[in-house]
Design a protein around this nucleic acid. Structure first.
Lengths: 160, 160
DNA sequence: CTCGCTGCAAACACTTTGCATATCT
DNA sequence: AGATATGCAAAGTGTTTGCAGCGAG
């Protein structure tokens, strides 16, 4: 199989064998873009690839993460999510429904040059910022049901 | 038991019954200060409280977190850790050994006023920053064993 | 006395692993 | 052909839950 395409190329560049499973998984991750979990990728691919196993999805995403082709995003108690973007950026998440979106922030605005005592006064190698808030649909739902249970949603990491 | 003390007072203020288990658990969390996991708290308390169960530690810490008396800190795949500080602050972690320390950062330096599209252009309710780097002991160990395996350590959330 | 708390054991969700078979190169 | 990837089922890990008895207020 000498097929070409962005996904196939990415796999080849990472020194990975090009299998239909991998093509489908990485393709789905890029297409979904919504920081899906392994299971969400699994369901998306399964439709036109019934023999695929969840194990393979986990293994493939782990391999891709190791090689820097995708990134892992963990929030609070939530299951792991995968990010097709690997360039430095941050995230915003809805504390009510868990929706997650990218946030591009000027690097300088988070003081990457700060001296960290834990690192012997050296600067951090990197940092991750997560913004917490309530997305528009959840916000509207909350105002329509004033006294209704305003579920804290997934993960109780939310500050304040 | 009408004993007094910071821990007892804190429990009472949160409307919780003062049991020896809770006094010991919250006391240990404050004393350790090192962002211990439930199991680490358990081991610390167990010494002079052999009948304590891990379940109670989980339940107590969860209750305290719900009431805002302690905070949860999750990093990557790692187990949950608990923080006796609940005021806004950030964290630095060693990507090699997992050590975690507090970082106090001026709030303005992370643009809390940024308009987040996910939140309908509203500002985030809060944010969490984690700085990644290598702590001094790990750094020295690495330079003494140049070609040795430089374990990525717990959690592969580390950027770049 | 009453309701909340504790401890035990069992259940849980998510993720990883062992192994035989199938597939890529 | 040879090495690597896949699928299945089973094992983990960390955390949560049901329930009966205990203890704080």
């Amino acid at each position: 199989m000498s097929s070409t395409g962005p996904v196939t190329d990415a796999l080849r560049e990472r020194g990975l064998r090009i299998t239909p499973q991998r093509v489908a998984i990485l393709g789905a991750l890029r297409r979904l873009a919504n920081h899906p979990s392994a299971e969400e990728v699994f369901r998306a691919v399964r439709s036109d690839f019934p023999s695929l196993s969840l194990t393979t999805v986990y293994r493939t995403l782990e391999t891709l993460a190791e090689r820097g082709e995708v990134a892992l995003v963990h929030l609070g108690r939530e299951r792991a999510r995968f990010d097709h973007r690997t360039d430095p950026h941050h995230h915003a998440t809805c504390t009510s429904c868990g929706r997650l979106e990218d946030v591009d922030l000027a690097e300088s605005s988070i003081e990457p040059g700060i001296a960290i005592p834990l690192f012997g006064g050296r600067r951090p190698r990197g940092n991750v910022v997560v913004f917490y808030g309530v997305c528009t649909p959840c916000n509207e739902r909350a105002s329509h049901e004033p006294s209704a249970r305003s579920e804290p949603g997934p993960g109780s990491l939310a500050p304040g």
